[in-house]
Computed example of a mutant assay.
Amino acid sequence: MYRDIVDFSLTTPAWLRSLAEFGTDAGLFVFAALFALTWWRLRQAPARDLAIAIAGPAGVVFAYLVSEVVKVLVREDRPCRGITTIAACPPAGDWSFPSNHSVIAAGAAGTLVLAWRALAWVGLPLAVLMAFSRVFVGVHYPHDVAAGLLVGLVAAPLFALLAVGAVTPVVRLARSRP
């Protein structure tokens, strides 16, 4: 399946290949903007709601760290070695499983949905699109991105929910100060 997707991607118009390569990283900035919008929207909400929004990025960092540990344990080489792909193949030692982009995108989408459910319609499809783009540009196998989506969707929201108990009193304290 990987080779079918990569071979197809190489037949697409140059503008689509450029968009795919740009979009694999640009989507991360979209998630950062969505976090900023969520924090702004919840700044006057109950302390626990704002605490979830604040804990969300910490959950994403936690999910990323989990994925880095898995990468070191699994040590799966990139599929792009020795073949033509849209994106340059990362250097040897930059392991493939799981996809960090997918972990971060799914973690961001999952924690944003916890904070503001209305973002599900944009966050979840964006995470899936970003994950697919990593296969499309040739730097990950499909199972890398599937595992990344799973790790992100589980680890980040779970961490955020566990952290909200510690963050909520801090939000209350910050609000009580002039």
Rank of each mutant, 00 (worst) to 15 (best):
A87Q: 07
S102Q: 02
K71P: 07
H101F: 04
L126V: 04
V113F: 08
A51Q: 10
D25F: 03
L126P: 06
A32K: 06
V103I: 11
A51L: 09
S18L: 11
F29T: 08
W39S: 00
R43E: 09
V61F: 11
G59E: 00
L124F: 14
L124T: 12
I54L: 14
S102L: 00
P125F: 07
I52A: 07
A108Q: 04
F31P: 00
A115E: 01
V61T: 06
I104E: 01
W95S: 04
D94L: 13
H101E: 04
E68G: 11
A87E: 10
W39T: 04
L114C: 10
T84Q: 15
A45W: 13
T24D: 01
V122H: 08
A53E: 03
I86W: 03
A115P: 03
E68K: 13
F22G: 04
L42K: 08
T24K: 05
L37P: 02
Y64C: 09
S96C: 13
V30C: 02
P57G: 06
G93L: 06
A88W: 10
S99C: 03
I83C: 02
S67M: 11
L124I: 15
G93A: 11
H101D: 03
C80M: 03
V103W: 03
S99I: 01
T85Q: 06
G123H: 01
F31Y: 01
G27T: 01
A108G: 07
L124Y: 12
R48Q: 14
P79T: 05
P90F: 14
R43Y: 12
G27H: 02
Y64G: 13
V74D: 10
A33F: 05
L42Q: 07
A105E: 02
L114Q: 06
R78T: 12
G82P: 03
G23R: 00
E76A: 14
A33V: 08
P91S: 10
K71G: 12
G93M: 09
W39I: 12
T84S: 15
V113H: 09
I54K: 03
G56V: 05
L73Q: 12
I104Y: 02
P46E: 15
L119V: 14
W95T: 02
T85L: 08
G59Q: 02
P125M: 06
L50N: 07
V113W: 14
S67W: 05
A47K: 10
A118T: 13
P125G: 08
S18N: 14
W116H: 15
A118C: 06
A51V: 11
R78N: 12
A118V: 13
G93Y: 04
G123Q: 07
V122S: 13
E21N: 15
G123F: 02
T85A: 15
V66Y: 01
F29L: 14
V122P: 11
D25C: 01
F97G: 02
L50Q: 09
L73S: 09
L28H: 09
A63Y: 00
A105G: 09
A87N: 08
S67C: 08
D49K: 14
L124C: 13
V66F: 04
N100S: 10
A47H: 09
D25I: 07
A26P: 00
A32V: 14
W40D: 10
I86K: 13
A115K: 01
V30Q: 01
L112E: 05
A58W: 04
L114V: 10
V61I: 14
L37F: 14
W40P: 08
I52Y: 06
W116A: 15
G123I: 03
A109T: 07
